[in-house]
């Protein structure tokens, strides 16, 4: 997750203190994983060093939380470039499930149970996300759907692999 660019985007409308940025970030993007203050200030000092933000004002007192940060022109350009460039799609070619299946077959164990156990676990998480989505607002729906579609893709792979298990067993053990 590009915390730096998200910070810049949040700073574009108006300057904010570090704790205010953290709160805005956690509220919109943090979901189950709020930022640590360490992350917040490490990110801000990197942005500061690269000239993408500047200190707008400092309140009297001690500690990093007195500073209020503002985006610079270079910062705005950076956000624009980040938004305009597509993310590199994940390749998903390294995968523990495939490794488990092959190791199970190589060692003469059954792989069907592994696949069944995994599908039940995936479906359990999908139920949780579905419940959260049903009770939530549009932001919750979009975030949960992102997770649900990815879990669904895993499940389709599990189903297809289960259907090809005999073939795979012959290939792996030959």
């Amino acid at each position: 997750m590009s915390i730096g660019q998200a910070f810049l985007g949040l700073l574009e409308s108006h300057p904010r203190h570090g704790y205010d940025l953290k709160r805005a970030y956690d509220e919109r993007f943090g979901q189950d994983r709020p930022l640590h203050y360490g992350q917040v200030y490490a990110t801000l000092s990197r942005l500061l060093k690269n000239g993408l933000v500047e200190v707008d004002s400092i309140e009297p007192g001690e500690g990093p939380e007195r500073k209020c940060y503002a985006i610079t022109a270079a910062g705005v350009t950076d956000v624009e470039r980040w938004l305009a460039n597509p993310e590199k799609p994940d390749l998903y070619l390294q995968n523990t499930l495939y490794t488990k299946v092959v190791i199970a077959l190589l060692t003469g164990r059954g792989a069907a149970e592994i696949l069944d156990t995994q599908r039940a676990e995936h479906l359990r998480l999908m139920r949780d996300l579905t419940r959260r989505k049903t009770d939530g607002d549009l932001a919750d729906q979009l975030i949960c759907d992102y997770g649900l579609f990815h879990l669904e893709a895993d499940l389709r792979w599990l189903e297809l692999t289960a259907a090809r298990l005999d073939e795979l067993t012959r290939e792996v053990r030959s």
Binding site: D116, R119, A120, H122, L123, M126, R127, L129, T130, L148, F149, L151, E152, L155, R156
Partner: peptide
């Protein structure tokens, strides 16, 4: 056979 639909259930059998 759609898992996203099945996710509205309480339980599943295969």
């Amino acid at each position: 056979h759609e898992t996203r639909v099945a996710a509205y259930s309480d339980r599943e059998i295969v």
